[in-house]
């Protein structure tokens, strides 16, 4: 029950993009088309789950026993960067179609603050190993949900007559604001 709560709270109520502002860069940059937005979401979810496993192990097996907590940020970002590289090589070897679908998005994920944010939140909230995995999965699904909805709206927006000064980033931000308001309706679902 606890695990399901963590999952839904990360995916919907405290959506990473719309209430923590993590991963705004891809959210604005890669949300032009539904198909690419969905692939980006899947790739991010994949990396998030693996990150939550690996960073939990590193923090609890290496950093805590040797009192190296101050190396947290340096080690996390290094691990994430190399992890993304490994995942890319692994997918390329194992499944060509998957690589073609996710390939170009993987390098972008390293600089996605949602990944590092996830690792930090897991440490901050003292989740156990299994809770961490569910939290990562929920955060990834929430990110996929938000970016896909955004892409759907932006595809429609291409046909709309947007006033000149609002073109580009401003209208995207305003749509995101309205989306965030819609997601506020979920607050109170889990207390």
């Amino acid at each position: 029950m606890e695990l399901i709560l963590i999952f839904f709270s990360a995916a919907i109520v405290n959506n990473f993009v719309l209430s923590y502002f993590l991963g705004i860069c891809p959210f604005i940059g890669v949300s032009n088309k539904i198909s690419s937005a969905f692939s980006m979401g899947l790739a991010t979810t994949f990396v998030m789950v693996i990150t939550s496993i690996v960073t939990w192990l590193i923090y609890h097996m290496i950093l805590l026993p040797y009192h190296l907590e101050f190396l947290q940020y340096v080690s996390f970002i290094l691990v994430i960067a190399s992890l993304v590289q490994f995942v890319e090589m692994f997918i390329k070897k194992v499944s060509q179609p998957l690589y073609r679908a996710l390939g170009i998005f993987l390098p972008l994920i390293t600089t996605n603050c949602a990944i590092l944010g996830l690792a930090l939140f897991i440490v901050l909230r003292e989740y156990t190993f299994v809770e961490g995995i569910f939290y990562g999965l929920g955060a990834g699904i929430g990110f996929t949900l938000a970016i896909t909805i955004m892409a759907g709206i932006r595809e429609e927006l291409d046909l709309a007559d947007v006033p000149e000064p609002f073109k580009g980033a401003p209208i995207t931000l305003i749509v995101a604001g309205i989306l965030a308001m819609a997601f506020m309706g979920f607050s109170g679902l889990i207390t």
Binding site: P165, F166, K167, P170, I174, A176, G177, M184
Partner: peptide, 18 residues
């Protein structure tokens, strides 16, 4: 609230653009 951040920045950027 989070929504306010998006709206304020969007409107501010639109104003600067205009």
């Amino acid at each position: 609230l989070p929504a306010g951040a998006f709206l304020t920045l969007g409107l501010l950027m639109a104003y600067l653009n205009s």
